[in-house]
Nucleic acid binder design. Sequence first.
DNA 1: GATGAATGAGTTTTCATTCAT
DNA 2: TATGAATGAAAACTCATTCAT
Lengths: 217, 217, 217, 217
Amino acid sequence: MVGNSRPDRPASPRPAPRKRPRQARSRALVDAILDATARVLVRDGYAALTTNAVATMAGVSIGSLYQYFPNRDALVLALRERHSRQMHALIVAQMAGEEPGLAIMIARTIRAAMQAHRLEPALHKVLATEAAHLETHHEKDETEGLLHALLERYALGAHAVVTVPDLRVATFVVGRMAHALIHAAVIDPPPGVDPDLLEGETVRAVMAYLTAGRDAA
Amino acid sequence: MVGNSRPDRPASPRPAPRKRPRQARSRALVDAILDATARVLVRDGYAALTTNAVATMAGVSIGSLYQYFPNRDALVLALRERHSRQMHALIVAQMAGEEPGLAIMIARTIRAAMQAHRLEPALHKVLATEAAHLETHHEKDETEGLLHALLERYALGAHAVVTVPDLRVATFVVGRMAHALIHAAVIDPPPGVDPDLLEGETVRAVMAYLTAGRDAA
Amino acid sequence: MVGNSRPDRPASPRPAPRKRPRQARSRALVDAILDATARVLVRDGYAALTTNAVATMAGVSIGSLYQYFPNRDALVLALRERHSRQMHALIVAQMAGEEPGLAIMIARTIRAAMQAHRLEPALHKVLATEAAHLETHHEKDETEGLLHALLERYALGAHAVVTVPDLRVATFVVGRMAHALIHAAVIDPPPGVDPDLLEGETVRAVMAYLTAGRDAA
Amino acid sequence: MVGNSRPDRPASPRPAPRKRPRQARSRALVDAILDATARVLVRDGYAALTTNAVATMAGVSIGSLYQYFPNRDALVLALRERHSRQMHALIVAQMAGEEPGLAIMIARTIRAAMQAHRLEPALHKVLATEAAHLETHHEKDETEGLLHALLERYALGAHAVVTVPDLRVATFVVGRMAHALIHAAVIDPPPGVDPDLLEGETVRAVMAYLTAGRDAA
DNA sequence: GATGAATGAGTTTTCATTCAT
DNA sequence: TATGAATGAAAACTCATTCAT
């Protein structure tokens, strides 16, 4: 099953065998198991996520599954961790580069977050709902940190266009607002609304909130 | 099915049967069961919601539970239904009265929704996440209808302060945005932020979005 | 089986192979494994004695364990064998020397047996109870032989102080009696009784039985 | 399976139905399960004592087994408890009656204990060895109490024939000695020795110990 | 209708043992 | 020989659901 009888390369000099054993093998197995977990989760939901189903889908014996994961929940936890890491990495990558004004940065951030959510929308949805009871430490925490830093940089100083007095509040409100709209757009898009249009609206909403009342103030 | 040969008392006049037993009894039982479901759900989460646990907590036999609910999920579905009805009723009640300008109506609506979420925050959270996969028809749908009607009334006509062109989009965006912020405020309030302050911020955010760019346009 | 094509270094002179590797290595491994078995057995009991636990505790791979022991029970069997040999050797050693009267010999024998039981009391207890079902041939058999020979020598002849008519019966009774008291004294000593005192009592009991009724007869 | 379609008695007056339900049923089931446990234990040993095997042998579903016993060990614990109770009851019953001298009482006690061990020798053996690691509180404790009381009554006073100074020690030594010999006689009788003869020898050994040295003192 | 004992399919989890490297 | 990842049969245990009373 895992044997995988890869035909030994023909008798070449084999300069540096560098056997790449332990680690590489385990990695592959662990990844296969997590992939299977994701697939079962997306296809059948959390309730149907049995360890046997995962092992079967991964083409791995149930024993191997337990070699790497102590129990069923550890599976989901690890998957969520991996998924979060991937999303976070994507966001960070897409936000790199010179830093123009707030509006552009907000737009760029929201776009990045949307991209990240498009990575595995179905999986993200299941993890966000059915796996919600498994400890905390969502990706939210880290991503919110990014947002906070961003606002901090633009809330003060020369181009301080932000009108919200308390930065914590602003971060929180913007974070939730944007997150909800991104989810809405990517995860369960509304039937009669153009999803692409929603990206712009999200930016609009966030900017409106952040700079509102400048005139009214 | 075969047994149960206890002969019903012979057709006597039955002077004052003290009516309403049937209905009232069932009602009381059903409610007790749903209450128990809510308690177990809040205390232990959806995964630990066993029919026996519910029956025990309700002080009812497991057999009686199945007399009124065909299976486990029906329990949660009915609870969600009941909870939604209660929330919706509260919102409708609080929104009654003459209709002033948009800002006031939005504020009132958001306040009403917040009140509704304060009805059973913990239960609401569990239902919104762990029970999200059980069929659709969330309370959202109905409440969103309310919102749509509201915006419709103010988006057009004389005092058309709303700058968002597509009403569907506006309804959607405002609905998600407000919902997220209300949830955030009531269900998992941020550690360092004053929850009461968030109500105002929610109104601010919604209004900012709806009326943004009036000057920029 | 198929792989393993690592070419053994070409037939070089191999100056001083430092003989005895094979045997000595195996010995060391086997002993390490048996030690680990004993430790796990004492710490966690027979039920928790897993081959993996033993291998880990021995600092040996599970594969190596199976190189030397065909299965789990063989482990315990071998350990019991080793333990019995050690005990028996100690008893034999301590009983050497000239042979005075019966009373002295009995005392010496009991003392020797007590010493032997003090070798590994905890291990002895586990082996005697939880491993009792694994085949027969306990150390008892051999030790009982010693006892029988001893009684035989003193039961008849000039100084025949023994009043028990059937020697087999006497051997049996004395064996069980002494064994029980030794176990009691060494393995689970009674809370309020001085353990050292019990050695004397054991001798007293045995002698009383063997010589009882001399006057009454 | 358990249905047990006992044909309802013909339409008799049925004076007092006294339905005897709950308790009686459970009792029967629990007893059936314990009986099955004993049978499996005796037939196949502790290692083969699986909950499924017990349930099958008892003619009961695995679910029912777990309705009454929280886990496998509880099964054995309860069985040992029951067995001990039975043995103890038998001993107490057989020791009733007027109380003659020490020798007779000792003889009677040992006979009673032997009878008790003959109740279920095979089961007793398995419980004493393979189930030894499951908590303590063996029947020994209670029976030893009986013995202690007995010796107390005869060690002092007019007919104080007992020469052992410390009563605790005497109780302990006699208890262990007798227990070992009874076990030996009933549980694993020696091949070449007449089991019946061993009862007398046990009495002899105990009496010899208790009264030894009267002349020597 | 009400009860709760009984059921058993379905899950999780363990661990002795194998075998490719 | 040594290693330890992989295997999978077998066990323990759960819980939705039924049904005789």
